[in-house]
Nucleic acid binder design. Structure first.
Lengths: 194, 194, 194, 194
DNA sequence: TATGAATGAGCCTTCATTCAT
DNA sequence: GATGAATGAAGGCTCATTCAT
């Protein structure tokens, strides 16, 4: 094995190719060309084309969750943690726009991800959000009647849609600039103060 | 010509088939079989396989928006309208679970929808949400510093993710039961009252 | 039978359509549209698409041969007959350019014509040419060592190629203007007089 | 890669298949089977089915013209060159009867050949004929009032029709045996000597 | 007779995967 | 391990033909 990192090379090439054309409109040979290897070589590292996507997602998601988890641990309280999580969610996607393209679009091939092989990694992120919420409730900074499972879905969906809009809008602005506004919506709600 | 509305027949069959397998894993002949017609007949009503998906989405989305628009018009104020919009969003998907499957999953084929032929229909829904927000701000029931474009994305994303989770969770509970909780999050925010 | 001449109507429409696109690139429904009838109606008059082409060719060829036969009968001698035959061959195609397109191109679908159902009509034309040659030899105006079967093929091929070039050249000149030159080549040969 | 020249292998297989059934009645898979390869392999060497036919014709025609050009260069005068050209035209087709079948029949799909991609190769042959005629006129052995463009079409058409008749007549005699008779018709004309 | 919607067999082409080198 | 030529199954789409009205 001359190239120690051919696995990674393929994953990175696949991200770019999938980002460009979507999974179903990408050919294995495109990935190979992008990675600078022969198409047969792909099959020494991945079982099928599907396997590339699932692996790609699993690895990237795990990395994503680990980064966020580590970053928010340093924050002093739940509110700060929530703000940091939202900001980081946007910053990471912003720094990896091709990854964002893939995740935001292909993520929704439900069967393949949430229901499938990557369920664990996705759950990891949901659990991370839950832990922040629970910490806030315990500390009395969040309402104690919050339905945590609903809130975390709502928050995730909100961030996800912000990212999707940004991706589909050809990334014509800085996504992370919207982080505070999003956080405010969640922390303060829409209603005017009485 | 026994069947009066073969166009609709095909759309409904396509919804079921796409919901079952996803667009790329569905064959035109599957749709034909589901619709009880010959595969060639499809091409008397639609130009390509793609055309089926786009038309399906456009028609269903237009219908969806029209229904919601009409329903919230009857509500007395912006808060009630927002609650009704969220509730109806969930109820409609709940009543049409196969449509929900398709929309939640295939919707994200960016190029095809948000960016593409269905952009108008999607915008229609976003605009509807905007109008409620604006009404609420004007009436002083919503904060007047709300960034409307962000709020509507966040709200849409929240509802969308609730629906996606419900779909991916095999619809093991009543989605519409969560409407109030979602509305509360937006109206009241997470923060505990001081 | 309201339309007594629907058979002819279809033939004429087919000539135009085949001339435009060639046989294999023409659809039966195109012919129907051109003829102003429904496509199903075609099958009340012709057994198959192939049958249209064969019938078309047979009828047109028979008509062609009859016209030429009658015209040359009026000529006084073999040389005049030969000149008239060549001129008429060109004039008829010139007056029916669409027919020319079809004949010059589709004629060569060997199996279907020379070898097939239309062999008799084609032979009729060859025989007509032979009779002129024989008359000329008998009258001593043509060389008596002429290999008649070869000459008639050569003459037919010459006229055919003149027509084909004219058709392929988009008919940018008058084909019949070349008749004398062609006749001269055959009557006088290429060789300079000693 | 066992076979060194798969391109040529496919061309030769296509010649046989097209000769047997004609272009439109031949399937790509037939060619593949005849060539002893998988049908997908065809597409590694040719862009489309059409491309096979066009390439086949272009290559064969170029080869044909080159052979004739070289052979007649060795002849001492225009008359000898003309006789050699006619003889060779027939001999080459006789040696490649399947190629003859294809050329004689498919050649006439006007749009594809004379008007299309192979126009250059066909022109090459016409120009070769022209050069012989011009040489003969310059040397005073051909009439100096010959309309060269007409003569070359007439000559080509004559040879072409001789070949077509031979092909359609199932090649029941030696085509090249007729070369002298054809040459005599052109050189001496039909008219009896006064 | 006439219609034209419906049929479904057929075919070109793509591309994930294999395997001899 | 690496290659990339070869494979061949699969599927979107066309269109000659049929048949209920």
């Amino acid at each position: 094995m001359r190239e120690p990192d051919k696995h990674q090379q393929i994953i990175e090439a696949a991200v770019r190719i999938f980002a460009r054309n979507g999974y179903y409109n990408s050919r294995v040979s495109d990935i190979a060309k992008e990675a600078g290897i022969a198409s047969g070589t792909i099959y020494l590292y991945f079982k099928t084309k599907d396997d590339i996507l699932v692996t790609l997602f699993r690895e990237k998601m795990a990395e994503f969750v680990a980064t966020v988890r580590k970053a928010i641990a340093a924050e002093p309280d739940a509110v700060a943690k929530l703000r940091r999580l939202i900001a980081l969610h946007f910053e990471i996607l912003e720094e990896h726009p091709e990854m964002a393209e893939v995740v935001q679009v292909e993520l929704r091939q439900g069967q393949k991800f949430f229901r499938g092989a990557s369920a664990n990694e996705v759950s990891g992120y949901f659990n991370l959000i839950s832990s922040v919420l629970e910490e806030g409730i315990a500390a009395g900074v969040f309402r104690n009647d919050l339905p945590i499972k609903t809130v975390r879905k709502v928050l995730f969906g909100a961030m996800d849609q912000m990212a999707t809009s940004w991706v589909l809008g050809k990334r014509g602005y800085r996504l992370s600039d919207t982080a505070d506004a999003v956080a405010d919506i969640f922390l303060k709600g829409l209603a005017a103060k009485p």
